[in-house]
Simulated scan of single mutants.
Amino acid sequence: MKPRLLVASLATATAMAFSMHALAADSAQEFVNKAAAGGMLEVESSKIAEGKASDGNVKAFAQKMIADHGAANAKLATIAEAQKLTVPKELDAKGKADVDALQNGTDPVDGPYVELQRTAHADAVELFESYAKDGDNADLKAFAQQTVPTLKMHQEMIEKIATTDTAGGKGPRTTVGGTPDPTPPLPGANSFTEDQAKGRIQDAGFSDVSKLTKDDQGIWRGQATKGGKHADVALDYKGNVVAGNK
């Protein structure tokens, strides 16, 4: 069984400030700021992956992100400028840190890029869905509504890539019985919903997932079965699944 894709090393994962933008926008200008920042991050990080990724699926995904988000960014700018709103022209500090870490990391780029894209798309879907429902500007609200399906398609694509083996990458660390890996589960802002957390744990080969609750460190914890063994399971914000004998 091939391992699942994960950040290539803990050092890179710790150093990279994955983009964790606040997910709601209270005004049209705030939506433009956050949507533009996220869109630029998608494009700039994908340009790096297009050139440095070793896996063909990752490269193809990066190319699609450059095309799709490039077009969406241009459309957002046109609407915002017509509404006399300011459009950011550069990455924000967090986005720049993410891109710099991706560009300068010593590990293969595939794993860090995939994890960045998973987080960025989870944030983008929530931002756009929220504004599509409650936005205060009709034109931007329509743009958000039209863009949500594409973002969800991207999210499905990157989740599929994350569950396959990729050159230079390693999968989410899963341990059943004995002593779990001493590093995961990692504390951090967790964007997985309960259903998504259950799905990720099931993808790691577990069944009968139950009693899932998210603790104050952002870690989903519950119970599950694998290979006939009952286990306590944990899922952190990076997708690491860790289990031990119950």
Score class of each variant (00 low, 15 high):
Met1Lys: 14
Pro3Ile: 08
Pro3His: 11
Leu6Gly: 02
Val7Lys: 01
Val7Phe: 01
Val7Asp: 07
Ala13Cys: 05
Ala13Thr: 01
Met16Val: 15
Met16Arg: 05
Met16Asp: 01
Phe18Met: 12
Leu23Lys: 08
Leu23Met: 14
Ala28Trp: 00
Ala28Asn: 05
Ala28Glu: 04
Val32Ser: 03
Asn33Met: 10
Lys34Trp: 01
Ala36Met: 11
Ala37Thr: 09
Ala37Asp: 14
Gly38Cys: 07
Gly38Gln: 06
Met40Lys: 09
Glu44Tyr: 03
Glu44Ser: 06
Ser45Pro: 03
Ser46Cys: 08
Ala49Val: 06
Gly51Cys: 05
Gly51His: 04
Lys52Thr: 11
Lys52Ala: 15
Ala53Phe: 00
Ala53Val: 04
Ala53Leu: 04
Asn57Ser: 12
Val58Gly: 01
Ala60Lys: 07
Ala60Thr: 12
Ala62Pro: 00
Lys64Gly: 05
Ile66Tyr: 00
Ala67Leu: 03
Asp68Ala: 09
Leu76Thr: 07
Ala77Val: 11
Ala77Pro: 07
Thr78Glu: 15
Thr78Val: 13
Glu81Tyr: 00
Gln83Trp: 03
Leu91Asn: 04
Asp92Cys: 09
Ala93Thr: 14
Ala97Met: 11
Asp98Glu: 15
Asp100Lys: 13
Thr106Met: 07
Asp107Arg: 01
Asp110Val: 03
Gly111Pro: 05
Val114Ser: 04
Glu115Gly: 02
Glu115Ser: 09
Leu116Cys: 06
Gln117Asp: 08
Gln117Phe: 02
Arg118Tyr: 03
Arg118Pro: 03
Thr119Asp: 04
Thr119Ser: 12
Ala120Tyr: 00
His121Ala: 02
His121Ile: 08
Ala122Arg: 13
Val125Cys: 04
Val125Gly: 02
Val125Met: 12
Ala132Pro: 07
Asp136Glu: 11
Asp136Phe: 02
Asn137Cys: 12
Leu140Arg: 03
Lys141Leu: 10
Gln145Glu: 15
Gln145Asp: 14
Thr147Ala: 15
Val148Glu: 09
Val148Phe: 06
Pro149Glu: 07
Thr150Met: 14
Met153Glu: 14
Gln155Arg: 13
Gln155Asn: 13
Gln155His: 14
Glu159His: 09
Thr163Asn: 15
Ala167Trp: 00
Gly168Gln: 07
Lys170Gln: 13
Lys170Asp: 10
Lys170Thr: 13
Pro172Lys: 05
Thr175Met: 07
Gly178Thr: 10
Thr179Ala: 11
Pro180Lys: 05
Asp181Thr: 11
Pro187Arg: 11
Asn190Gln: 10
Phe192Leu: 10
Phe192Thr: 07
Thr193Lys: 09
Thr193Cys: 10
Thr193Asp: 10
Glu194Ile: 13
Glu194Gly: 07
Gln196Tyr: 06
Gly199Ala: 15
Gly199Trp: 02
Arg200Gly: 01
Ala204Leu: 07
Phe206Thr: 07
Ser207Asn: 11
Ser207Glu: 12
Leu212Gln: 08
Thr213Cys: 02
Thr213Pro: 01
Lys214Arg: 12
Asp216Ala: 14
Asp216Gln: 13
Gln217His: 14
Gln223Val: 11
Thr225Leu: 04
Lys229Gly: 01
His230Ile: 05
Leu235Met: 11
Tyr237Glu: 09
Tyr237Pro: 00
Lys238Gln: 15
Asn240Pro: 05
Val241Met: 04
Val242Ile: 15
